[in-house]
Amino acid sequence: MVKTKTILIVDDEERTRQGLKKTLEIWGDGRYEIYSGSNGREALEICRKRRVDLLITDIQMPEMSGLQLLEALREISQEPVVIIISSYSEFEYAQRAIELGVKNYLLKPISKKRLTEAVEQAMEVVQSQERAGFIDKVVDKSLIEVNTEDTASTPIKEAMAYIQENINGQLSLRDVASHVHLNPSYFSALFKERTNLTFSEYVTRKKLQNAKKMLLTTNLSIEEVAEKVGYQTGKYFIKLFKDYEGTTPSKFRKTASSHSI
Rank of each mutant, 00 (worst) to 15 (best):
K103D: 02
V2G: 01
G169V: 07
R131H: 15
V52L: 01
E124K: 14
E45M: 02
I135C: 00
I7T: 09
E25R: 00
F252C: 12
V125R: 04
M214W: 11
V2S: 04
E227V: 02
I7P: 12
G37V: 04
Q232E: 11
Y88V: 14
L182C: 04
K239M: 07
I261E: 06
F199S: 15
G66D: 15
Q170R: 11
Y236V: 10
V229F: 02
K235D: 15
G133H: 13
D243T: 13
A94G: 06
R74P: 07
T198A: 01
L182D: 11
E145C: 04
N39C: 02
S185Q: 12
F91Q: 11
I7N: 07
L182T: 10
I98A: 09
K239T: 12
E33L: 00
L190V: 08
K254A: 12
E223P: 06
S250I: 10
V82P: 05
S77W: 13
R48W: 09
G19P: 09
T116G: 06
I56E: 08
G30C: 01
Y105V: 14
Q95S: 10
A118R: 13
T23F: 00
S257G: 07
N196H: 14
A256N: 13
V10R: 04
Y88H: 11
L216G: 02
Q232F: 03
S257A: 11
D175P: 06
I144A: 00
E71V: 13
A177D: 10
S86C: 08
V10Q: 07
G234A: 06
V180P: 08
P62G: 11
S153H: 04
Q170K: 12
D53Q: 05
P184K: 01
S185N: 13
R31G: 03
V126F: 07
G40E: 06
S250W: 04
E158M: 03
K108C: 14
D140N: 13
F237C: 09
F241M: 13
A159D: 13
K108G: 15
M64I: 14
Q78F: 08
P249Y: 08
I34R: 01
N104K: 14
P109Q: 09
G234D: 13
E158W: 01
V52T: 11
K157I: 10
P109K: 05
A118Q: 12
N219D: 15
T23H: 01
V10K: 02
L70A: 11
M123L: 15
V81R: 01
C47V: 02
K192R: 10
V176S: 06
D58Y: 04
L171P: 07
S221Y: 10
A161F: 09
V146A: 01
E117I: 14
Y162G: 06
S77C: 06
D140F: 03
S65R: 04
I261M: 03
T23Y: 01
S257C: 08
E45Q: 07
L54S: 05
K192V: 10
Q68C: 10
C47W: 03
Q18S: 09
I76G: 05
E90S: 05
V225S: 01
